[in-house]
Design a protein around this nucleic acid. Structure first.
Length: 564
RNA sequence: UGCCCCGUGGUGUAAUUGGCAACACAAGUGAUUUUGGUUCAUUUAUUCUAGGUUCGAGUCCUAGCGGGGUAGCCA
């Protein structure tokens, strides 16, 4: 994969610094290289926040010549399924990464069970009969210590027997748990005899009905890391309070002990990131699915037209730290602009057409050379039909323009890109006063590329398409899904749903140069002076593309005109 | 209200570990431009506050203030 604008040796983030320290000082790491893992739970689609984690974990393996596993944290069968597994693998690969090994926490259920028995034998775990509510009452609060469960002092034999019968399915869901025996008075509530196993008679997407007890995250995660010989187990900040428990399990089992490190998860302005909210947007049909081009999911961004390179660039730019921050979505948008600016071919497309008739142009068609990509000469030129009847953008003409308006106006001149300078001679209106046509004259001496083309200067250059050859295509103009930079900030009685932008999608018909109708599915192009677009992968048909607007071009004029 | 973590330009990250606060992005200004794009130049900081240690503090210490996490048989 090509990395655009490879940021020169960026300074190391704190994780890299710590990793290098560890390898320089820890004997158990001697002769090894970094081993990380990306551990998603297959209970939803990956989003841009996961992309940060993926770039971090796989990126570490890449920069240090180590390994990175993909491991599905599938310990809760009630929420997980194979559709999510497939989408996650697809997304990771699309981002340009390949895992060293593919694992499932469920592959370790047997080992985990044996280790649990070991802890029971060592008197470090017990079967607890407390109900859900009782357990909560016994746990204490943030300020008060908890109380020991009345079942805490069961004999090893009784615990062994009960635990085995839990496994065999003799008890109903929720009636018993296996708990680690740690410290009910710990200020860290994670250490107050945490549950290791719960009874759940549920069908698992991989193990089927083989199990009716399932390990909790804390009991499964660190041990999975240990089994896979992970050196650095990188997770988000909310697991920080779990680290003592992570360490406790490894130590009390006497097994290889990876180091857990936490970093801040990403927040993005104008978007929601929690799986719950994303799921709600999908289920309640506020969007058309997980891969709706307005979704911050990786599949949504992909369909929108974002490139893997642009996401890598974005992740490089936002960095990694332990401070909870919110990234301005502009950074994301500029990342795709930067990448596409260098690789996207330019085309002419008029989204809101107004007809222009060149009254002094002959009734013929000529073909003009147009540069495909000024940033990349190797892409060459193409031939653009030009004739007496054209379309230009409605907003490129103003009857009574402000002073800094460099485009077409009555009696004014403008260059048609790759063609001629034209002058607006007459504004034709319908009975209601709407402008329906502009009659213009062209100056034959100003043809682009001709020796004297640049003799006469005009302030503005606008895009156009030749009417007879123009193709009509569907274009979906996407905008941000939310109006508010922090969608969660809703007034009393409202929710983030009330902050949804009602104009986040607008479907129009555009008149475009013929070549655009023949683009292959998934192609990304620039509509000159307008923005970057992508041929939608789902709704396009051969010869009938549907374009998604990825992002507009920067628009200095919009800023100027907004000011005045 | 216990415990844990975090406060550096507008935003996001750096600072050789105690030695000239740097980079990217954004925003502004100017130049270039047959995309009002791109590109180039340029401007933007009492390092949360108050003390302390030191020749010297963003960095170390103390206190305060502010933000986040945490009381699932979720991950």
């Amino acid at each position: 994969m090509t990395e655009p604008n490879p940021a020169e040796p960026a300074s190391k983030n704190f994780i890299e610094v710590e990793i290098e320290k560890d390898f320089a000082s820890k004997p158990q790491l001697a002769g090894r290289t970094v081993a990380t893992r990306f551990p998603p739970e297959p209970n939803g689609y990956l989003h841009i926040g996961h992309a940060k984690s993926i770039c971090l974990n796989f990126g570490l393996a890449r920069t240090y010549g180590g390994t990175c596993n993909l491991r599905f944290d599938d310990t809760n069968p009630s929420k997980e399924n194979d559709e999510y597994v497939q989408s996650i693998m697809n997304d990771v690969r699309w981002l340009g990464f390949e895992w060293s090994n593919l694992h499932y926490a469920s592959d370790y259920f047997g080992q985990l069970y044996d280790w649990a028995v070991q802890l029971v034998r060592d008197g470090k775990a017990f079967v607890c009969d407390l109900s859900f509510d009782e357990m909560r009452a016994y746990r204490g609060t943030l300020t008060e210590p908890g109380k020991n469960s009345p079942f805490r002092d069961r004999s090893v034999e009784e615990n062994l027997d009960l635990f085995e019968r839990m496994k065999k399915g003799e008890f109903a869901d929720g009636t018993r748990t296996l708990r680690a025996k740690i410290d009910m008075s710990s200020p860290n509530t994670n250490l107050r005899d945490p549950v290791m196993y719960r009874i759940m008679h549920a069908h698992h997407h991989r193990t089927g009905d083989a199990w009716c007890i399932y390990p909790m995250y804390d009991w499964a995660h660190g041990q999975s890391d240990s089994i896979e010989n992970i050196t650095h187990s990188i997770c988000t900040l909310e697991f920080e309070n779990h680290r003592p428990l992570y360490d406790w399990f490894c130590q009390n089992l006497g097994i290889y002990h990876p180091r857990q490190m936490e970093f801040a998860r990403m927040n993005l302005t104008y978007t929601v990131m929690s799986k719950r909210k994303l799921l709600q947007l999908v289920n309640e049909k506020h969007v058309e699915g997980w891969d709706d081009p307005r979704m911050p999911t990786i599949s949504g961004l992909r369909r929108r037209g974002y490139t893997p390179e642009s996401l890598h660039l974005f992740c490089d730019r936002i960095g990694v730290a332990r401070f909870n921050s919110t990234i301005d979505v502009i950074i994301l948008e500029n990342s795709i602009r930067d990448h596409l600016n260098s690789v996207a071919s330019r085309y002419m497309a008029v989204l809101d057409p107004i007809k222009v008739v060149l009254t002094n142009y002959p009734d013929t068609t000529e073909y003009l050379d147009a540069v495909n990509n000024p940033e990349d000469e190797s892409t060459g030129v193409r031939q653009l039909p030009f004739s007496k009847e054209l379309y230009i953008e409605r907003e490129d003409f103003m009857e009574t323009p402000p002073s800094k308006f460099f485009r077409l106006k009555p009696g004014g001149e403008v260059r048609l890109r790759y063609a001629y300078i034209i002058r607006c001679e007459e504004v034709v209106k319908d009975a209601d006063g709407n402008i329906v046509q502009l009659n213009c004259t062209y100056d034959a001496d100003t043809k682009s590329g001709s020796p004297n083309a640049t003799e006469r200067k005009v302030k503005g250059t606008i895009h156009w398409v030749s009417a007879p050859q123009a193709a009509k295509v569907k274009v979906r103009l996407y905008d941000r899904l939310f109006l508010n930079d922090h969608p969660e900030d809703a007034p009393e009685g409202k929710t983030f749903l009330d902050n949804i932008n009602p104009n986040s999608i607008k479907v129009i018909d555009a008149m475009v140069e013929p070549a655009l109708a023949k683009l292959e599915i998934g192609a990304r192009v620039q509509f000159e002076r307008n923005g970057y677009y992508c041929v939608d992968t789902k709704d396009s048909k051969p010869g009938a593309p549907v374009f998604n607007r990825i992002v507009t071009l920067k628009d200095t004029w919009a800023k100027i005109s907004a000011k005045s």
